[in-house]
Design a protein around this nucleic acid. Structure first.
Lengths: 144, 144
DNA sequence: CGCAATTAAATTGTGCGCAATCAATTTTGG
DNA sequence: CCAAAATTGATTGCGCACAATTTAATTGCG
């Protein structure tokens, strides 16, 4: 029998996950465009709005991204004027990423983004919470 | 109050979704490396193993990818010897993508991949089914 | 028929992601 | 104190993704 059911596209969990993640990034795009941010840049800004002046290493730990992704992304954020990058004086290996005044101010404009997305989803808080928990568990299983 | 809770990273649904999707692709990588495929290439092969000789357009419809992604990817699959690309004779705008003998044979080696992943997940079939349904619904909401 | 509108791929340009490697710095163990 | 190991970022190279544009072919309509 040629048809191995386990290889059918509609049997996969990976594909809807992959497609949903891409659709999510695309759904954010028009909202973030108003802020001059891409989705990964938005994630970096979320971290910095919570804890300013962290190293590239810490950003990478929070977002599970490496320096190969973050270094050029941060340079773009710097060019756009949202962040500053400077070598640490205590440990010259480390690069400290800090918000500029504009970068801090951008948080106010960004405040409408989560609300807009939650409207878009049209799900109850409970449902979003459950999905978030599921995604975290999936991540845990897949990343070890 | 500076701290708008709605912008906290741990409040987002998008981030675990994004992280899980990337972790999933990484989890597939060592399995697919044995086959000489990347994850998106594997998705294309899943479609072709189900229906051989489809156009780039159909591949795009199945996988929600556009020609900007598929054209170079298919050229790489062709270089690797898994597929053939040829202009349709009925409609010269269309490009028909067909499996080579090797490409068809690769399906046997790929058969172990879904099983390996399902072991990795360590979830019940019911749970996988529920998650898949959730991801599809999320995709539907986000892609319209 | 003839031509505008549509369709299918390919191309171009930008921005991730990530493996692998490298350079600079710091830490550590003898 | 000093050489080896570890740490931190940057760089390089490749493969997606996707928007926007281009090219070529087909369709539809007056």
């Amino acid at each position: 029998m040629s048809t191995d059911d386990s290889l059918r596209l509609d049997r996969q969990l990976c594909f809807p996950l992959y497609a949903a993640a891409r659709a999510m990034v695309q759904a954010y795009a028009p909202l973030l465009e108003k802020l001059g941010l891409t989705y990964p840049q938005y994630l970096v800004m979320l971290v910095l709005w919570e804890e300013d002046g962290v190293s590239v290493k810490v950003l990478g730990e929070r977002l599970f991204l490496d320096s190969g992704t973050l270094t050029p992304l941060l340079k773009r954020l710097e060019t756009q004027g949202w962040v500053r990058r400077e070598r640490s004086t205590e440990d010259a290996r480390s690069v400290r990423v800090s918000l500029t005044t504009s970068g801090r101010a951008l948080k106010r404009k960004a405040a409408s983004v989560p609300e807009a997305m939650s409207c878009r989803l049209g799900m109850s808080l409970e449902e979003v919470t459950r999905l978030r928990r599921d995604m975290r568990r999936l991540f845990e299983v897949l990343s070890k």
